[in-house]
Computed example of a mutant assay.
Amino acid sequence: MRHWPLFALRLTTPRLELRLPGLDDLDELADRAAEGVHDPAEMPFGVPWTDAPPHERARSTVQVHFRQWGTWSPGDWSCSFVTVWEGRVVGVQEMRGRDFAVTREVATGSWIGLRFQGRGIGTEMRAAVLHLAFAGLGARYATSSAFVDNPRSLAISRRLGYREDGLAVEKRRGQAVLQQRVRLSRDEWTAPDGFEIHGLEPCLPLFGA
């Protein structure tokens, strides 16, 4: 689409492709959400959307993308890529920016279908959006956060070079839980081999870059 060039934006890595989803991609992503994202005894998300029944998880997964597209502005955007591995949509890697033209800071979040976890996909897809942020958009910082009882997410952050950036208290399932904030600066980031950005230039004004 000439007036919405984001649909042509793609990130590629040695094993993955990240892209804004088409309708078929959203349908497959909704299947991943319905199948399950984590052990029901755990809750890695501040908003417990995965506590809903499978059909509601599927529907809300589709709706969140429509909301992000409809409210996108250069000063406040959320870019959620579907992650494709071996031809299958396996999860989502999101990158958000607010007043990016001034702050030059992005935040990330992600999830992967339960049966596709444990393959290093989470690290590789986060590295892909870091490459977009630092090499493509000229970001100065990338931030993330995870509850302190979510060691897998925090391990990905450490692996990619993030530093601890303080604690926050958040409500989760009606209880107060500590969340660890982390931060990575462009100076501490190492550009990965085999990572490429496609179709970015027409999208730059939409990112405020």
Rank of each mutant, 00 (worst) to 15 (best):
A146C: 07
V47P: 01
A52G: 00
F100N: 00
L26M: 15
R140D: 02
R173G: 06
V84Q: 04
H3R: 12
Q93E: 14
W189A: 03
Y162M: 05
A127W: 04
V64W: 05
A30L: 11
P21A: 03
A41C: 06
A107V: 11
R152V: 13
R140K: 07
D149P: 11
R183Q: 04
R19Q: 07
P151A: 12
G36W: 03
R32T: 08
R115H: 12
F100M: 01
K171W: 10
P40W: 02
A155E: 10
P192H: 02
V106M: 08
T61K: 06
W85L: 14
V37N: 01
M1T: 12
G75I: 09
L11R: 04
L206S: 06
R119V: 01
R67A: 14
S153L: 10
D51W: 13
V82N: 10
G36R: 00
S153R: 08
R88N: 12
L6H: 07
L154Y: 01
Q63F: 00
S80H: 04
Q117N: 06
F147V: 05
G122V: 13
G70A: 15
D149Y: 04
R104M: 02
L26H: 02
M1G: 15
H38C: 11
G75M: 05
M43K: 00
T13P: 12
Y162E: 06
R183D: 01
G120Y: 07
L18N: 04
G208H: 00
D165W: 01
S60E: 00
R186L: 02
R158P: 02
H65F: 15
E105L: 09
R172G: 08
L154M: 08
D149Q: 08
G120L: 00
W111M: 09
A168C: 01
V64F: 08
E35A: 15
R98D: 09
R96Y: 03
L167Q: 06
G161V: 12
F7E: 12
R104T: 01
D31K: 13
A107G: 15
V84I: 14
W189C: 01
C203D: 12
V106L: 09
W85M: 04
E35D: 13
D193S: 05
D149M: 08
N150A: 10
Q93Y: 10
V90E: 05
S153W: 10
E201H: 05
W77N: 01
F100P: 05
D24A: 15
P21F: 06
E42F: 11
L200E: 07
L23M: 13
A191R: 06
S73T: 15
R126A: 11
R59S: 08
A133N: 01
G174M: 09
